[in-house]
Design a protein around this nucleic acid. Structure first.
Lengths: 331, 331
DNA sequence: TTGTAGGCGTTATCAA
DNA sequence: TTGATAACGCCTACAA
């Protein structure tokens, strides 16, 4: 019975206490050594680090976070795990964060709101329109937020929209120059800022040439809806000669429908998209698109957050590059 | 000066202390109320919850985790953010975890190892062969681990491999029945267990029919390498009449190369893959494949973890269903 | 039913 | 250069 009491608590982790004991120093000295604090002698540091290694010690994150009020984690919150562009952004973000010893933590759905509310991350990158503005504002009271899916104005909140304006205009100018007359638009969700910007540029360029939007088809950025719109167009008989799609996925759905109905792309109807996703290179005909360098975008976002958190310098936002890639879906 | 001292610390969050004060109860009562502990009167609970809402209180995760030695987070660690099957598994996992109030946390690269070592998650799902066995063993001393990419034997460690055996045999049987004679294999990474299992079934079935592997091409599960192999085959002139690829992505690269070199798929060479990824439906010819229900797999994994953590019952592992989908890439 | 108090594992202040 | 000790915010015996 007596002996039982002295037994180490079942399951208990190695703590800094154990390390200190093994290195024959006080807890505080151990902490200094482990955190590279300069005021600890070289020999002591070595003893402590050795002990830590021998005991396979790793700090308890909760305790550290509670004390320092930091987590070292950066959250990336997305609306779903299967979006084709997230992969690239995330790779860029992660590569860069690793260099600065931040951890990336990706989440989606309710989890995202919980992690934000309980401040389990030091900074948040948000690409999920399901997250409520209020949750974001609240998190931003004490932490930095980068928005990719909307625009909010407040201290600590920054938005990194893709640069749509110029590049969509350029594409449309070139399309008009090629002689297309009946130019239509397949939208994303109406309220999406990206969609709105892209459509604004679309309309503006047409207007500059005294042309009218041949048709405005409502979509939602998905292949499925793109397909449905394609079927409707095919059946209608009232065909445009060019459809600019707000993103690649809807363009791919559209082309799929056209293929099925024997509509010749690009000769009957030409199609272009936006994003430059991998899938666009594997469909037939391959998709003309505006290619965004999402990986670099991710890299830039991570850079921004790091310099913000470390307050090294005025953090600067770099827009990702965009370029037009002509493939066989246009003449 | 005096006044300065009394000012609330800049930036400080709302704590349970503030809630207790506003509800005029002690901290412990507030805690009980917030955690649905039964021994607190209805009115008191209401007062506390109201106060929490009014103050916009959310618990400090670090403090809670430190005390309870739990995080409520389940980690999913992957080798990269752009794998086409992760999206589906993750959706399934997340949907199920949400119901049980667990948060999903996805990470990759060094971050994964850190999160595991510092035990920032209560359970880990691992699909990243870059993570070292030792890191996993260590984490598993106190937590449950589900492996999707390898097999390790230890307390708390479980592996959920896709069921490759039966279904690959069935496909090969059917292929042989169709009269293919020169049947080749395009592998994944040689050391990958999935690849090994699939190849074992492949070889076994051929052997049963007294056939030999026409060629073994080494790949690595990527489109790029699949493409390179395809080019090599095209140039060699020594063609198989059927290539079974260890996954869809390599099959897609292969077909792409064949298309470029004017090899007729399926008539010159037929191709089949494994996974059933979206891309396979959009290439020409569409890819014959073994389709795995990855979303359900994710669902099952989450179920397993939840019942394990809650020790409700003997946790049971359900394998995901697999079925063969014939498309135009085979005769 | 409610309150008091101790401690989870760290970091960091202060004194030695 | 090192060590004792007080927090960080929360949960939970135990006492009232």
């Amino acid at each position: 019975m007596e002996r039982e009491k002295k037994v180490k608590k079942r399951d208990s982790r190695v703590t800094i206490r154990d390390v200190a004991k093994r290195a024959s120093v006080s807890i505080s000295t151990a902490s200094y050594a482990l955190n590279n604090n300069p005021n600890v002698s070289k020999e002591t540091r070595k003893r402590v680090l050795d002990a830590a290694r021998e005991l396979n010690y790793y700090p308890n994150a909760s305790a550290r976070n509670l004390k320092t009020n930091k987590t070292g984690n950066i959250g990336f919150f997305i609306y779903g795990f299967d979006g084709p562009i997230f992969g690239d952004i995330l790779e860029g973000v992660n590569l860069e964060l690793q260099k600065a010893n931040y951890n990336i933590v990706v989440s989606s759905g309710i989890s995202s709101a919980v992690l934000l509310r309980e401040q389990q991350v030091d900074a948040a990158i948000i690409f999920d329109s399901n997250l409520e503005d209020e949750t974001i504002y609240n998190f931003a009271k004490r932490n930095v937020v980068v928005l990719l899916d909307r625009t909010l104005k407040d201290k600590n909140i920054y938005d990194f929209q893709v640069e749509n304006k110029e590049i969509v205009c350029v594409l449309l100018e070139e399309i008009i120059a090629k002689g297309y007359k009946k130019i239509a638009y397949l939208s994303g969700p109406i309220e999406s800022p990206s969609n709105q910007e892209r459509f604004a540029c679309f309309e503006e360029t047409l207007k500059r040439h005294k042309m009218e939007t041949f048709k405005f088809y409502e979509g939602d950025f998905t292949i499925n809806t793109g397909y449905k719109v394609g079927v409707k167009i095919a059946k209608s008989g009232d065909w445009p000669d060019f459809v600019f799609c707000a993103n690649d996925e809807s363009a791919i759905g559209l082309i799929n429908a056209f293929n099925e109905f024997g509509i010749d792309v690009p000769n009957d109807i030409s199609v272009a998209g936006f994003d430059g996703i991998l899938l666009g290179e594997y469909i037939k005909p391959r998709l003309t698109t505006i290619q965004i360098d999402y990986k670099t975008w991710g890299y830039n976002i991570a850079q921004f957050i790091i310099s913000y958190l470390q307050k090294q310098k005025e953090a600067i936002i770099n827009k990702p590059t965009a370029k037009i890639i002509y493939k066989e879906s246009t003449k």
